[in-house]
Amino acid sequence: MLTIENLHAQVEGKKILKGIDLDIKAGEVHAIMGPNGSGKSTLSSVIAGNEDFETTQGTMLLKGEDLSELSPEERAHRGVFLSFQYPVEIPGVSVTNFIKTAINANRKAQGLEDMPSNQMLKKIREKAKLLDIDSKFLSRSLNESFSGGEKKRNEIFQMAMLEPQLAILDETDSGLDIDALKIVANGVNKLRSKDNAIVVITHYQRLLEYIVPDFVHVLFDGKIVKSGTKELAQELEAKGYDWIKKETVG
C-alpha cells in the first residue's frame, strides 16, 4: 500500500524527518509512537501533501505511484485520508454539506456523477449511527464550537464516509474521554478491512488497547528507532520514552 524510503523533510529550513523507512501493506494497522517533537505529525502532513513541509530526500509510493508528484487533493482522490490532530473550523458550512462536497469531489475525480441524494442521505445516517452522532450534530457548522471529542468523532465520521485506502489518524485520542475513545475506536475497527491500511499516530498506548495494531514503530528525533508488535507499545508505556532516548543515545 504505502512504501516510504529514506524520507527526509524540513519546515522553514529546520530538519524534522531524518530518514524514515516504512512499509505498510493492505489489511495492516501500524502504530507510530513517539515523544513530542519527534516528527509524528510532520510525517502525517508530508504523506498528505501539506506544502508547508519540504521533502528533501527519499520516496513515498502509494501502490507504486510516486506521491510527491501529486497535489493534496489528488492524494485524497487516490484514497489517502488524514484525521487531523487539530481540525479547522469552517463557519456556515454544515457537517453534512462538507462531507457531501467531499464525496462528490472524489466521485468527480473518478469520473462518476454526483451521488444521488437519497443514497447520500442513507449513507450519512448509517455512518452517523456507527459513531453515535445525532442529526442535530450533522447540521452544525463544521468544527465550530465543537468540543475536542466532537471534532475527533467528526474526523472519523468523514473517514467512514470516504472509505479511504490509507487512513492516518493523527493523535485521534487526544481530547477524548474514555467513552468517546471507545466509540471512535469501535468506529475505526469496523472500517478495518483486508483492502485498506490504517496508521495510528499517538503519544500514548491507551488508544492501542482499543485499536490493536499489527506493528508498532517508535519515532525519535526524526527516525524510526524501534519497530515491533503490539507488545512494544506496552513496554514503552511501562518504561517511558526515556528508555528509548537512553537506548538511542547509548
Binding site: 498528505a48 501533501g49 508547508d52 493534496p72 487533493e73 485524497a76 479547522v88 463557519p91 458550512v93 467531499a102
Partner: peptide, 27 residues
C-alpha cells in the same frame, strides 16, 4: 491556508474550497 489544506485533504480542490468557505461565510 489551513482551511484550504483541510478541504484539499478531503479531495476538494482549492477553487471549490474557496467557494465553500465563502458560501458558508455568506450563508
Amino acid at each position: 491556508e489551513d482551511q484550504i489544506f483541510y478541504c484539499n485533504q478531503r479531495g476538494i480542490d482549492t477553487e471549490k474550497a474557496i467557494a465553500l468557505i465563502v458560501n458558508g461565510f455568506s450563508k
